[in-house]
């Protein structure tokens, strides 16, 4: 690895200053599970690494039924699944948090880091999109909010400008009769990158028999995570049925624009989007009905 400098700001202001001082030669460090590998392998380089784990706002989880869930950008995965509010209200996020990497990785890796790393295969992003998450960004020229589905712009690229920081992610409080699920397909049972991944969130009516709304997002099938608006919208107002789910799966498959590489082929990945859309919708429905 090339030589770097390292700093540990204690406040958001200090962090923003540190990031801005080096422009695109500064890199934010949360869990480091992607960044250190990339710096070591020469896939990214930096003059300054800014450790965000001492900035309070970036390391908090807060929840209220009014404002929903706010996850500090540097909060490691294990704190999500260990948090009672998250476990009770966001099982779709817990799905992701508990399958990223290993237990060791989950001790360090964060949803914020997963979002900022902006890998097409990021496991944390589809469920956040499905749940309507919004990214809170701060920079030298102030703060702004970006829906998570608009955050990534290409493999490893996103809307963050040099000097900008992701502070937190806000996820609305779950609606009544709602449920979500994230599944990915990997050849092993852990420790793999998704061949394809699907996050689905549904809101049902009080009877549990009809969709009010739904959101579906995909991983590993395009240069960025994919928000399948048409697939989700196709369910709104329909009765819960295999046919409706099948139609949503078909639309999700249409949104998948994968490549063939060492992890899978185009054909396999599109097929898996169909399989996983069906499975995640069915699991989300069960959760919305309180059956799980």
């Amino acid at each position: 690895m090339e030589a770097i400098e390292f700093t540990t700001p204690k406040t958001i202001d200090e962090a923003v200053q540190a990031m801005a001082s080096k422009g695109d030669r500064a890199r934010a460090l949360a869990g480091g599970t992607d960044l250190l590998v990339q710096l070591r392998g020469g896939r990214r380089s930096a003059d300054l690494v800014v450790d965000l784990k001492e900035v309070p706002e970036l390391n908090e989880i807060s929840y209220s039924p009014g404002s929903g869930l706010t996850i500090g950008a540097a909060t490691p995965c294990y704190r999500l699944y260990a948090n009672a509010d998250v476990a009770a209200n966001y099982p779709g996020l817990v799905d992701s948090a508990s399958l990223i990497g290993s237990i060791q990785i989950q001790g360090r890796a964060s949803f914020g880091g997963n979002l900022c790393n902006s890998a097409p295969s990021a496991d944390a992003i589809p469920p956040m999109i499905a749940l309507g998450a919004v990214a809170n960004i701060i920079g030298p020229s102030g703060s702004r909010q970006v829906p998570v589905e608009d955050f990534c712009t290409g493999p490893g690229r996103n809307v963050l400008e040099p000097g900008e920081l992701l502070v937190s992610i806000n996820i609305p409080a779950p609606a009544a009769n709602s449920g979500a699920n994230y599944l990915r397909f990997i050849p092993r049972n852990e420790m793999d990158i998704a061949v394809a991944g699907v996050g689905s969130a549904v809101v049902l009516d009080a009877s549990g028999q009809n969709f009010v709304s739904a959101r579906i997002a995909l991983a590993s099938v395009a240069p960025t995570p994919v928000f399948c608006k048409a697939a989700g919208d196709s369910l709104a107002g329909k009765a819960v049925s295999d046919e409706a789910i099948e139609e949503a799966a078909r639309l999700a498959m249409e949104d998948a624009k994968p490549i063939t590489d060492m992890r899978g082929t185009i054909r396999q990945r599109i097929h898996l989007v169909g399989v996983l859309t069906r499975r995640t919708l069915n699991n989300a429905i069960k959760r919305a009905r309180g059956e799980e």
Binding site: R188, N189, E190, D261
Partner: peptide, 16 residues
């Protein structure tokens, strides 16, 4: 070789 890491070479883990 495109998968020259333990991540992508995929040897069995205890969970498999």
């Amino acid at each position: 070789m495109m998968n020259s890491s333990f991540l992508d070479y995929r040897m069995p883990t205890a969970l498999d």
